[in-house]
């Protein structure tokens, strides 16, 4: 399905098909991600949302389709063009993906060292500004192994925004965090949107986070985009899968353990 939005889209995805071997993971996804807003891509496990994110980031080549981002098609772009696009984006991975041999500050400074000719003093000031934004100023010298789950995610976020990207991506930002740390991270995402005016894309299935941060929601199920719209539109959706998901209804086909055991026992008699 194709959605429409009043804002010009930052990312335009058309007829995206992705296979892993013989398995069809994405089956013709069409989605417009509005600029300057927080778009949440939600769906159950195996819905294809992380694969969609990997395609947008240029980490996975789709079988067919197009992903237009900042005026370039990621699918047909050369490696040089993709690298130029990536300089305009920041990514906070699910597990943080911090480099374990570097301190928090060194992790955050890496993109600046690689892509700019700023002197070390300026780089250190910029690092402290970003660390302050994520409330981690005192963790500058710590190693990733010394950080808690929430601190790791915040450090990864500081690294993702160090180049002031136009697009910011989060993969399961609140996964594995306790409710209050997850809420802190949600507030941080909202603060970033307000302060840095970025287009933010969040892949998650945490219901509470979704309705707290989202301006726009895309719901995926079994490799297809089944609904897209504002949180109110999604809540009002009559789509059965969307409603099942919102009401936390178990999926059909899930085996009742007692019944299954009884059937097996009867069969052996």
């Amino acid at each position: 399905m194709t959605n429409t939005s009043s804002n010009a889209p930052s990312i335009r995805i058309r007829d995206l098909y992705v296979d892993y071997g013989a398995r069809h993971i994405l089956k013709g996804v069409n989605l417009d991600i509005p600029s300057g807003k927080i778009t949440v891509i939600m769906g159950g496990s195996g819905a294809g949302k992380s694969t969609l994110l990997r395609c947008i980031l240029g980490l996975k080549k789709p079988v067919s389709g197009s992903i237009c981002m900042l005026g370039k098609d990621v699918v047909t772009a050369s490696l040089k063009e993709i690298y130029a696009l990536r300089k305009e984006m920041g990514v906070a991975f699910q597990g943080g993906a911090l480099f374990s041999s570097m301190s928090v500050a060194e992790n955050i400074q890496l993109p600046l060292h690689e892509h700019t000719s700023l002197d070390q003093h300026t780089i250190e000031i910029m690092t402290r500004i970003k660390l302050d934004m994520v409330n981690m100023l005192d963790a500058e010298k710590l190693m990733p192994s010394e950080l808690s789950g929430g601190m790791t995610k915040r450090a990864a976020l500081a690294r993702a925004i160090i180049m002031d990207p136009k697009l910011l991506f989060f993969d399961e930002p609140s996964a594995g965090l306790d409710p209050s740390t997850a809420a802190e991270l949600d507030d941080l995402i909202l603060k970033l949107k307000g302060g840095l005016r970025m287009t933010i894309v969040v892949v998650t299935h945490e219901m509470e986070s979704i309705f707290k941060i989202a301006d726009y929601i895309a719901v995926m199920s079994e490799g297809e985009l089944i609904a897209a719209g504002t949180p109110e539109e999604i809540r009002a959706s009559t789509h059965e899968v969307v409603q099942d998901y919102l009401n936390r209804k178990p999926r059909e086909g899930i085996v009742d353990a007692d019944e299954h055991l009884r059937a097996l026992t009867e069969g052996s008699d």
């Binding site: 980490l59 990536r86 300089k87 984006m89 990514v91 991975f93 597990g95 993906a97």
Partner: peptide
């Protein structure tokens, strides 16, 4: 380990060539 913990992907996403780095 860098590959399975997405550190190589993180380098790619920072526009840093993991081959070179």
């Amino acid at each position: 380990i860098m590959r399975i913990t997405e550190q190589v992907d993180a380098l790619e996403c920072m526009a840093i060539s993991p081959d070179k780095y």
